[in-house]
Amino acid sequence: MLILHCPCCGVDAEETELHAGGEAHIKRFGPGSDDDQFHDYLFMRENPKGVHFERWQHANGCGKWFHAARCTATLEVFGTYRAQTTEPPKDIRDAITAKRPGWVWREFS
């Protein structure tokens, strides 16, 4: 069972307490953007077989949203961090690099 540490309330929450919120750090495009940008924003997810940054809500807990870095091929969790950021913090990136050298994710890797 997937267990994620909630950085908001400090609880190690198991999957039944959590609600998955999909890919994190999506750059939003709205009025004024071109069709391709809007299409990619709406539909094109990274969907990697490997390192994935994603949003989670501690739904049956503190209720707050946070981010997690996880491997979709092994279900290994690299770490969780607060949602009030536009990119993963350095310690998370370092933790990933230690286990998955050469990982890629848009402009963050």
């Binding site: 069972m1 997937l2 969907n47 077989k49 994603e54 279900l75």
Partner: peptide, 14 residues
């Protein structure tokens, strides 16, 4: 389906 991205051919018990 599970709510999260997953390539492991293994689902969640709950």
């Amino acid at each position: 389906t599970d709510g999260f991205n997953n390539y492991t051919q293994r689902g969640s018990f709950h």
